[in-house]
């Protein structure tokens, strides 16, 4: 496998610069500084409550950081709204699956493609000026409401969605309700839905949660496959050490909102700070 672990020639796609998130008196994320490079597969681990999901929520614009800056692909995304950040190319999945359970598999994917045909220039314009992008997006939105020349686009959208569903091996469920799928396939559908937004960076929040060893194995192959096929950078949270150590090139370890270690899987396994965070410290002299 080609995994140039610390290949500094690859340019950073996501930069978190001294990001801090406070909820009242609780500091959930504290002075978090990290870089994800183009094409990397990075893991984020840490004990429960360490602030991992909060980091994802900050990147995707669900929360806005109290302090610090988040830069994606050269654009400061700190003040942007979730849908604008999605337009720029960040997609995510959730710890507890959040599909639109009453909608079919096809519809789930279609919703995610929504913006692509609404606003083809969003990427470009957002780079120049956040405000005018909003105006363009609004224009396209009303145009879609009024259906000016839209039926053709809609057909194209459906065929693209079908293509994606087929690629990910879910086509036998095409018109089934999302809630009717087996658990492992619901996870896959959630990833398919994220891919439909055409991301450059994919954030996976505990993709292997609740899976048996066989499903976990499948998932690992699946993640590696889509990474190649869709040319993705992946940042994932995971508790299953087999997954993390098996596919991640680099690992960031968090505890109490802070980064306590960073390195290759080997380095992390032997890092005393990490062992302490997970297992607790031995009392000296006892």
């Amino acid at each position: 496998m080609t995994s140039p672990t610390l290949d500094l020639s690859r340019k950073p796609i996501l930069i978190l610069d001294q990001v801090t998130m406070q909820f009242g008196g609780l500091v959930a994320v504290d002075d978090f500084t990290a870089e994800i490079r183009q094409g990397e597969l990075v893991g984020l681990i840490g004990p429960n409550g360490a602030g991992k999901t909060t980091v994802f929520n900050l990147i995707t614009g669900i929360y806005h950081p109290t302090k610090g800056k988040i830069v994606f692909d050269g654009i400061d995304i700190t003040p942007l709204k979730p849908h604008q950040i999605t337009h720029l190319g960040i997609a995510r999945t959730f710890q507890n699956i959040r599909l639109f359970s009453d909608m079919t598999v096809l519809e789930n994917v279609l919703v995610a493609q929504h913006h692509k045909f609404t606003n083809p220039d969003a990427d470009r314009i957002l780079k120049i000026n956040g405000k005018s992008a909003k105006r363009v997006a609004n224009f396209w939105f009303w145009r879609s409401v009024l259906k000016v020349g839209y039926l053709k686009f809609e057909k194209e959208m459906v065929s693209k969605a079908k293509e994606l569903i087929e690629k990910l091996g879910l086509s036998k469920f095409m018109h089934e309700k999302a809630s009717a799928l087996p658990y492992g396939d619901q996870r896959k559908l959630e990833i398919a839905r994220a891919l439909a937004t055409d991301p450059k960076l994919l954030l996976l929040d505990e993709p292997a949660a609740g899976m048996n060893p066989k499903e976990t194995e499948d998932l690992m192959r699946f993640v590696e496959r889509i990474r190649e096929e869709f040319d993705l950078t992946i940042f994932l949270i995971e508790h299953d050490m087999k997954v993390v150590m098996g596919i991640c090139e680099r690992i960031i370890v968090m505890d109490y909102g802070r980064i306590i270690a960073e390195g290759t899987p080997k380095e992390i396994q032997n890092n005393p700070k990490v062992i302490e965070a997970y297992l607790g410290r031995e009392w000296e002299g006892v």
Binding site: P82, R98, N138, R193, T197
Partner: peptide
Amino acid sequence: AADIPTTSLMGVNV
């Protein structure tokens, strides 16, 4: 109607 935050993460202007 199913889930507002997730929909906005799909790039929909809620």
